[in-house]
Amino acid sequence: MKNRTLSALFLLAAPLALFSGCKKDSDTPEATSTGSVNFTVQNVVPNTNVVGVQPPTPLVLNSSVATTSTGETFTVSTFEYYLSNIKFTKSDGTTYAAPDTYFLVDQATAKTLSFTVPNVPTGDYTGVSFIVGVDAQRTGLTNPLDFTGKLEALNQAYNMYWTWNSGHIFLKMEGTLTSTNPTKPLTCHIGGWGNNSTPNAIVTATPAFGSNKLTVRTDKAPTIALQANVAKLFDGPNPVTLSTFMGAHMPSAQSVQIAQNYAAGMFSVTQINTN
């Protein structure tokens, strides 16, 4: 009871702390004009109610049923991941890498489902990319006591950290596999940054803009609506058969395969609003 109150308090405090990490960043050398880019994230499960291609439906923890391409089903109780190293691309191929962008998206905490990248040079952008997870520099080489301020999202207190094998958990999905009889718990903790030549699960997602364009102006803060389809953890370049899946709890070759899956197909840009 006490514990639950405490963790509830913490969950409320977490996003506040998280957003306090992305205030003004005025160390851009040139005096270029800048604007902000907002992101919203909607986690979804594929829609299998109707035959044919239907838009996915929002993920509701402990309730929505996610179906893989082979028809296996699962429900989700925890879904958290890092989005970091956000980079914007212009049509001429030049890029802007937003410094110190680390966001922890947690389906259980509404406030983490949107965030803002400030100080993006004004211009028209045609693409975005981000690491789903944390770069090796920060997870592996930065003094682990430095996860405060701009790096607050990386703080070990968010419980996205392996204490026995120092490094962040990039993505955490916990739930129940419901297509087996009996059902069985599903644990998918993905991480590993290549230290000691171990498997490296640091992957970059580049969800296409399609015909959308991102227009950054000093007086315009556009919003990129991202969608993340949880079923894609197990579909894509490396399909995973859940009935025989032992779970992922540590850096491993299979964790890397799952990371490749979510890099390839989990994220899409559904809309870009320019206010």
Partner: peptide, 16 residues
């Protein structure tokens, strides 16, 4: 040798 620093080390017994 899984833990890379003295400070970090305390997290293992605390949370285990």
């Amino acid at each position: 040798g899984g833990v890379r620093g003295l400070e970090l080390q305390a997290l293992a017994p605390l949370t285990s």
